[in-house]
Design a protein around this nucleic acid. Structure first.
Ligand SMILES: [Mn+2]
Ligand SMILES: [Mn+2]
Ligand SMILES: [Zn+2]
Ligand SMILES: [Zn+2]
Lengths: 142, 142
DNA sequence: TTAGTAACGCAAATGAGTTGCACTTATATA
DNA sequence: TATATAAGTGCAACTCATTTGCGTTACTAA
């Protein structure tokens, strides 16, 4: 599915209007190898673009299954594009996330297998997250 | 090592003064099965205890290896007592954390084994965290 | 006992994220 | 193509966790 179809299909499906800002925002994620925070997004738009609009757009994108929250060094809200297996209101992520301590970026490691335990010592596990910290490929080879 | 020795040794080692508040705060963690946030701590003390003091105490306790940060549902700062394997400025945690979606508390699962991968697809892994979400033992049996 | 400094209390600041509201614009359909 | 509806926008004000500055207090070590 190419970017235009993805926007058309999903935006229509969820009653999201294809505004200039939201289309640009989606492209930002689409073209970005790593994740984005509200502040980083803000820098990519003119100063008249309000942070409230950014936060609201991120929120609806997430609910629509276009982007998913990823961990951030400083506990900020941070998002990455979802792969096709993600359904709206039902993100089907089973990948680990990697925080690079050099460039401070967050990467989705789409093929890192998560443990599949369903319970442990009486604790019932619904969902499991793995967050790794270290040096990313790019920074390693610099 | 009992609580008095632990306080004496560690506080002395790091030039931490044994003030009434800090001794009480440490006991709070010592007696607590689960984790504590600044707000929860605040409720346990008289209103004259300032939140700045709480945050500063938590910070030095963490630096001294007495407590460690644990994940929180709402991205708040939240801490748990460290077990003896923890060194100051060098927390040696190798356990998973569990967030109960019923009681919203965070638990340390000290014996949940973490994957030991040192690298993945060229990413060098220094440290790995596992955060699980579900229903805790206590809430399950209610 | 006393000097030195960690810790304290209070108040003000910071900064991410949220909310209310009036205005604008995309979309659907007549 | 005109119009109605509802989603999205911009702005300002707000919330709330955490931080910081500063003058005072109280441990600790000598
Ligand atoms: Mn991801
Ligand atoms: Mn723990
Ligand atoms: Zn990097
Ligand atoms: Zn529970």
């Amino acid at each position: 599915m190419d970017i235009q179809n993805l926007i058309d299909n999903t935006f229509k499906k969820y009653g999201l209007k294809k505004t200039i800002f939201r289309k640009e925002l989606f492209k930002l994620f689409y073209d970005s190898l790593n994740s984005l925070s509200a502040k980083e997004i803000s820098k990519q738009f003119s100063s008249s673009t309000d942070k409230a609009s950014i936060y609201r757009a991120l929120d609806s994108f997430e609910k629509s299954g276009l982007i998913h929250q990823v961990p951030d060094k400083n506990n900020l809200l941070r998002y990455s594009l979802c792969k096709s297996e993600c359904k709206p209101n039902n993100h089907a992520h089973d990948h680990a996330h990697f925080l690079c301590s050099v460039c401070e970026e967050t990467f989705c490691l789409d093929d890192f297998k998560l443990p599949s335990a369903k319970s442990h010592n009486g604790f019932l596990i619904n969902h499991l997250k793995i967050i790794m910290e270290g040096t990313c490929v790019r920074c390693k080879s610099i």
